[in-house]
Amino acid sequence: MTNTFWTGPRPRILAHRGFVLHPETSQGNSFAAIDAALEVSADVIIETDIQATADGVAVLLHDPHFTPAGGLAPIGIRAVQASALPSLELPDGQTVPTLRDALVQYPTARFNIDIKAALACVDVAAAINDARAWNRVLLTSFSRNRRLRTTQLLERPVATSASSREVAACLTAASVRSARQFRRASARFDALQIPERAGRIRVVTPRLVRFAHAAGKEIHVWTVNEPATMARLVAMGVDGIVTDRPDLAYRAIEGS
């Protein structure tokens, strides 16, 4: 991994949709949430979700529907033109930001960008290219096609993490103890971002961490909010913690 995205300190703290201490009154994926996360540490990575407006503009939004202020019914972001975003205030007074604006507003921050809409791929790439942000973004998606389509439009390579199918292939390789199979399964990305467990099945294991590190890949675990669990995972060797509580993660990791 030669991209300078990876030069920051480890274990990495990835602030899940920024930092929202009071979700009942505040909005994730907003500039206020990003500000709060970066106040914890300038090294925090902002994890954000990307949807697309009707005209294909990439916006920081987890769900395809959102509720504007004023008690209006939820509306679909795919029905909204980007030009209308500044007039659509959210209940906490924030507006839905574009990825382009976020990369400009925070010119030194690193972003973990989860592409949730195929329509957003072109604008995600354009925003990264225009901001010359190749060394401070990590692209991910549950869809390998969305991730590859976006990276193909970039002027320079960026850091990436695995799709759902690629994660499954890596887990299979680790389960059968095949380092060669693992290297082949992980050849197209730099990191696996995974939950510690899927139901009763343990996903993150010392063996998986060893196989990933032997192949030159990182392991980031989501979404972890208990300091004791963070410390245990870091002791296991994971490279990053995706969390709603970057403040607690910072203290837990400092003390580990």
Rank of each mutant, 00 (worst) to 15 (best):
M1P: 12
T2S: 15
N3S: 11
T4Q: 08
F5R: 04
F5I: 08
P9N: 06
P9H: 09
P11G: 04
R12P: 01
L14K: 08
F19D: 01
V20N: 04
H22P: 01
Q27E: 14
S30W: 10
F31Y: 00
A32I: 02
D35N: 02
A36G: 05
E39W: 02
E39N: 12
V40L: 07
S41L: 10
E47G: 08
I50E: 05
Q51S: 11
T53L: 12
D55T: 13
V57N: 06
V57D: 02
V59C: 09
V59L: 07
L60T: 04
L61T: 05
D63N: 11
T67Q: 13
G70K: 05
L72D: 10
P74Q: 14
P74A: 03
V80L: 11
Q81A: 09
S83Y: 06
S83K: 09
L88D: 05
L88V: 12
D92V: 01
D92F: 07
G93A: 10
G93Q: 06
Q94G: 02
T98P: 04
L103F: 00
L103P: 00
V104M: 00
V104S: 01
V104R: 02
Y106S: 00
P107D: 00
A109R: 00
A109Q: 01
F111Y: 05
N112R: 06
I113K: 01
D114H: 01
D114I: 08
I115R: 08
A117K: 08
C121K: 02
C121Y: 04
V122Q: 14
A127Y: 09
A127R: 01
A127G: 03
W134D: 11
S143E: 03
L148A: 14
L148I: 10
R149N: 03
L153N: 11
L153D: 13
T160V: 09
T160H: 12
A162F: 13
S164H: 11
E166D: 13
A168P: 04
A168M: 12
C170V: 10
A173W: 13
A174S: 15
A174W: 07
S178V: 07
A179V: 06
F182H: 02
R183I: 09
A185P: 13
A187M: 14
F189M: 13
L192Q: 05
L192R: 00
Q193P: 02
I194A: 06
I194C: 04
R197C: 05
R197E: 12
I201K: 04
P206N: 01
L208H: 04
V209R: 12
A214I: 05
G216Q: 05
E218P: 03
E218S: 15
E218G: 14
V221R: 06
W222Q: 10
N225F: 10
A228W: 09
T229K: 03
M230G: 00
A231Y: 10
R232F: 04
L233R: 05
G237S: 08
G237M: 05
G240V: 00
G240Y: 01
G240D: 01
V242I: 15
T243P: 14
T243L: 12
T243W: 12
T243S: 15
R245N: 14
D247Y: 03
L248T: 11
Y250S: 09
R251S: 14
E254F: 12
E254Y: 13
G255A: 15
